[in-house]
Design a protein around this nucleic acid. Structure first.
Lengths: 197, 197
DNA sequence: GTCTATAAATGGATAGAC
DNA sequence: GTCTATCCATTTATAGAC
């Protein structure tokens, strides 16, 4: 019955991570939640790094499941991006939770190298996904292809557009946590106005 | 001679704030730097909030001086934006320092309300500046004016573009701290490609 | 798997002497 | 302005009994 305590700890920690950041929660927080002692939490995760790495696994699953969900068949590529930022908006603005990648990222200075490496990989999964969607969108004539100078079909343009999309989205969400959602909506709308054909 | 200890503490704290965030430095760090004891630091700033608010003042001066510096006369409006993100790039990528506003922002959950209020004002100063530059740029025909539908000259468009600029810039810098500078350059170039006429 | 007990360090803060 | 001394709370972590 209590065999899944480990998993429950991970799930609850993920919530704390997204609400307060990596250094914002402690073994005591977790112990209290499950009515056990700190030492018992250490039984499941000897060091906080162990828990942190488990949270990286959790984040990867969360991310891959999310991205797959945005790719409902039959939708336009813009619609995929829209699903992405609507989900982000819901988490940040309604549920007051950070994206777990950003939550880790905020505590970059205190993270172990092993976690930093995982974090890099996670960031790349996300960026690659956006790039692929935009690349397909350019080929389908949904999006503007800039720097259409030489022969590099749409590759470099797609990655740069992906950067503009994902960073403005994350930056705007970050801003919204303190200033409210208005600028987030304006910014995403502006991106659409500039890039959609 | 030691009358300016207070100011020296503020200056050094600003460095620590930008390197490690608000919760990333302690009174002990400061005491060590000046060869004094923690209690002596508390003499200058009874509570950490007091130091935090002094750092908000410092940040405002830093910001206003920076923005004024980007407005060299005779430069184009694009050039002003370029100076802005080149400076940001230098701080983040060369000096490994965060913008103090972002540094505070990272620790949002643990900040006192008084600091949060100051932080909001600081964010608005920055955003207003970018908006004004872009507004002038649109009027001068330097930048594209989207959503050129009704009579709202260039106002709403300028603010939305300002959001896209500043959030993509900050988001890309954030990303660069872990992943390196490549995407930052691509992203800023992409913004220019889309918006400059 | 969970407990008690404990260690060792850190962080914010205060009282009162010099 | 700075010091010693001290307090209290928190956090990560370990040893060993049940």
């Amino acid at each position: 019955m209590t065999t899944n305590t480990r998993q429950q700890i991970i799930d609850y920690s993920a919530e704390l991570l997204r609400a307060r950041g990596y250094s914002g929660f402690s073994f005591l927080d977790i112990a209290r939640e499950f009515g056990i002692k700190k030492a018992s939490v250490h039984h499941h995760f000897p060091k906080k790094v162990d828990l942190g790495l488990a949270l990286c696994d959790w984040t990867q699953a969360w991310l891959e499941q999310g991205l797959a969900h945005f790719e409902a068949k039959g939708t336009s590529n813009w619609n995929k991006l829209e699903r992405y930022f609507k989900a982000a908006q819901k988490h940040t603005l309604n549920e007051q939770l950070m994206c777990p990648i950003s939550a880790f990222h905020n505590d970059l200075p205190v993270l172990d190298d092993s976690i930093r490496e995982r974090l890099k990989a996670l960031g790349n999964i996300e960026l690659d996904w956006v790039e692929r969607v935009i690349e397909q969108g350019i080929e389908a004539g949904e999006f503007l292809s800039t720097s259409a100078a030489e022969g590099s079909s749409s590759e470099s343009s797609a990655r740069a557009l992906a950067g503009l999309f994902i960073f403005s989205c994350k930056g705007a969400l970050y801003h919204a946590r303190l200033h409210g959602k208005d600028m987030f909506h304006q910014t995403m709308q502006q991106f659409a106005a500039l890039v959609r054909l």
